[in-house]
Design a protein around this nucleic acid. Structure first.
Lengths: 105, 105
DNA sequence: TATGGTTACGGATGCCGTAAACATC
DNA sequence: GATGTTTACGGCATCCGTAACCATA
């Protein structure tokens, strides 16, 4: 499992279209198809129902979409944290004065 | 970024040794070295300090370790959820009667 | 029949392991 | 000098894009 696959799945789920997702992601349509299939194979279940004209999420797809978004969010936080060389005590531009963050540290 | 890289990093961080991590993961030592380096390149910073005899985490490494564990945990939950074909209402062996789960759905 | 997803296929890239080189204790 | 990591390198697998195929509305 990798962030590329998750990105593609999230995009397809948002667009409900492989071709539009491919366009938005600047890759070819077969590439999206390949990677979604690889993800489905790894997970051992279908995430999407294709009927040549329409795409919709399976129940598993809905469930996994939440995880995918959470994982991508975590990965993005980690990258921002390290790439911007933030130190643990120098949080960036925190609006409001909450002492605990919502979900992840 | 992928779960393999994260797995290897977490293992190296646990063992504080590339060779022991490689042994535990049943891959060669250079493979671990390659993947950790790829991860560091992608993140744009060093996660580990190598001194040929000892390995220790950088500050960035400590920070990233938490994210890595969280991401791997999420990925594992997602896989368990889908591979075991659990339906949302048929949670497995829940001890106690909590109505909300602790962190993730 | 037209649209949209999948499969086939070829070239390029990447990955892993063996072997050699390198660095520290 | 011994231990442990990195670099070099070669074979194999994987990935991506073009093109062809296929299925549905």
């Amino acid at each position: 499992m990798n962030t590329m696959q998750l990105n593609r799945f999230v995009e397809v789920a948002a667009q409900l279209s492989f071709s539009k997702a491919a366009e938005a992601l600047h890759v070819s349509q077969p590439t999206v198809s390949h990677q979604i299939k690889a993800l489905e194979d790894e997970l051992g279940c279908a995430l999407l129902v294709r009927s040549t004209r329409t795409v919709r999420l399976t129940d598993d797809g809905f469930a996994f979409l939440e995880y995918a978004n959470d994982i991508l969010d975590l990965a993005a936080r980690a990258e921002r944290r390290l790439k911007h060389k933030q130190r643990p005590n120098s949080q960036q531009l925190r609006i409001g004065a909450q002492h605990k963050r919502a979900t992840y540290p």
